[in-house]
Amino acid sequence: MLVLTRKVGESVKIGDDIELKVLSIDGEQIKIGIDAPKEIAIHRKEVYLAIEQENSAAADTSLDLLNFLKKE
């Protein structure tokens, strides 16, 4: 992993189109501004991982669970 040190107001360019800027630091919280083409999806990593995990759990449905959906 490439590690760079930045101060508030400084940024990092990734390729030609993406810029990450450190906007402010407040204790342990760092506010980051991202300029990227709109076709680049940007999510907090834990949100994306949670969706991955939920999709995996959903795909894990066994046939007997499906029976719950049948008319009774």
Binding site: V47, A50, I51, E54, N55, A57, A58, T61, L65, L66, F68, L69
Partner: peptide
């Protein structure tokens, strides 16, 4: 929306976030 079926059925969830 994708459903995650669980046992018991009342614990099942629906993914409204994605």
């Amino acid at each position: 929306s994708i459903l995650t079926l669980r046992k018991p059925f009342e614990k099942s969830t629906i993914n409204l976030q994605a």
